[in-house]
Design a protein around this nucleic acid. Structure first.
Lengths: 326, 326
DNA sequence: TTGTAGGCGTTATCAA
DNA sequence: TTGATAACGCCTACAA
């Protein structure tokens, strides 16, 4: 029997008799045949490789996202090539080149905070390598994407704070050129506006996403003596920093000041008080984006439109925002 | 100029003139030549692929380990193919087959807790695929490995507890057929023995590694009314479970009972009291094992002996074991 | 429905 | 020191 017949039988090609097909499959199993992916890859010019560019592998959200992607890509025969940018633009640019040189089948990107231009992504687009964004997107580019509805999340938590009786609510923000932080900001604004609460410029603190930054901010805030009713931080880490300083200073959360974060980092559950935050379903999002890419890669007709999936973060209400214990 | 000359020039083959070599390099750069890894892989019969089998990607320790491995393998041109076992033996066996079928260059394994036999690893050894163990090893197999010195870690923390005046110290243990938990157990035993402290069988609780198990254990313990002086858990998660129950029951840590965990999970720092534990340097360990594998793959002469690196966990003393605050 | 033949890009071997 | 050739194993256009 010729190699081509076998190849076709194994690939379940339609123009092959059922009998032959079954015979081949059985014989292949018996003689423990394993197709050589390397040869197949060369022939097809594709490596069954998916590139992933993320800020950091070992953050809670991203490690869960990777787990989700692997869960989809591995059984489908694709490998992941994972690159970390550490939020650095140069590194992102370089990772992209590496992936292109490796002839990856597709690229999933979560943009570094240092990135402000889309030029480097053109290289992938020029090579006709499908480019998908995950969580952190370049909104100017019309590509497949899986994101969080950060606006809804921020809106929900701010509204919750307001309903709890907090009125002067400050916001610890991230760089506004990143969709994620922009939307957390606008969601906050929207909720405040709807409640007729004023947001003066000094109520929004820029570039305050880390524990250190949160601590510095809280120290200054306490020194000023002019406390808000509550603080909604775009990051659990800066919320952590704030809480630690407030506790040190003897300011009670939530009775003196409410506090909420974003991302449901594991530690938020165990702080005292536990911190209200938003769960982001990283694993599901990872699965979703991987499925989206594989669909695009394996669908017969070229897809002419882009898909966009948005996950709604889940508000997790904890002690730090429940003003009046029952 | 012939393809072979160019190939040799690019590979810096010794039998090629310096002039030609330079010319080729320059020309390649000018015309933006990118070698096709796929073809090279086929020819060499190797895919520059490293398989990784771990219990779970998204655990703190393992996600850091992966980050460390990527940091080494990526620049060296290797990709990682990551498989999760979820501690299940079947899944481990299957992952191993998948990796072998993918013609990986080498395999790094952290054994699932469900695994009790080494038979399935023979397949990799038969195929002459280098097999390395990471953290969780099969001690019967003589392979390259990178591990924690769990004995030293457990010994150190137990000794610390004893020095703090805790004498009746219980141990929450994991499955003894896994080196990691066996050594945490024996390290504990050794420290107790050296201090002439008795360890009766009921002082060692088997299969108590999760938050749930820790809670169940603590409930029973409290009901019994017979509290030890301290508890050393082989897992931060069961230590967490214990702490939550003790707090609920109004038992003070550390003044009523001391508590220590293992692995320095991020939440241990923020619990109240913060928990004494051991840091495992996952990222460094990941780098180390990746380097070890690449060395083996790329060294000219076949290595005839196996390497073993042991990292010493760092004792991190926190509130949960400081009996007398100053 | 099946077989034949050629080529994907690289590299090892042999010959020049 | 360089060039020609073959082969890695699979896939597909074309022929039968």
């Amino acid at each position: 029997m010729s190699a081509s017949t076998i190849s076709r039988a194994l690939a379940k090609h339609p123009r092959i008799s059922v009998k032959t097909c079954e015979l081949v499959q059985k014989t292949a199993a018996v003689m423990n045949y394993r197709p050589n992916h390397l040869a197949s890859n060369l022939r097809r010019g594709k490596g069954k490789l998916i590139g992933v560019i993320i800020p950091r592998i070992n953050r809670h959200f991203f490690s869960h996202a990777i787990a989700g992607m692997e869960a989809i890509t591995n059984p489908a025969g694709y490998n992941l090539m994972i690159c970390q940018t550490n939020e650095d633009f140069e590194s992102e640019q370089q990772s992209l080149q590496t992936l292109i040189n490796n002839r990856v089948d597709g690229i999933i990107v979560s943009v570094a905070s240092g990135t402000r231009t889309t030029k480097h992504f053109k290289a992938a687009i020029d090579e006709e390598i499908p480019l998908l964004f995950f969580d952190r997107v370049m909104e100017e580019l019309d590509t497949d994407r899986v994101v969080n509805d950060n606006f809804a999340g921020a809106y929900a938590v701010t509204k919750h704070l307001i309903e709890q009786g907090f009125h002067k609510i400050m916001h610890l923000a991230g760089p506004r050129h990143i969709n994620v932080y922009k939307h957390r900001y606008t969601g906050y604004l929207k909720a405040m506006e709807e409640a007729d609460l004023e947001v003066s410029p000094e109520m929004v603190i820029d570039d305050c996403l880390t524990r250190d930054k949160g601590e510095q901010f809280a120290e200054k805030l306490c020194d000023s003596g002019n406390l808000p009713d509550a603080i909604f931080s775009a990051s659990d880490y800066s919320a952590l920093g704030v809480l630690l300083v407030l506790k040190k200073r003897g300011i009670n959360v939530p009775s003196d000041i409410g506090l909420a974060g974003f991302a449901n980092e594991p530690f938020t559950e165990f702080l005292e008080p536990s911190i209200t935050t938003l769960e982001q379903f990283g694993e599901d999002m990872g699965q979703s984006v991987a499925r989206m890419l594989i669909d695009r890669l394996e669908s017969k007709e070229e897809k002419k439109f882009t898909s966009s999936v948005s996950f709604k973060p889940q508000l997790i209400i904890r002690e730090s925002t429940i003003k009046n214990k029952i």
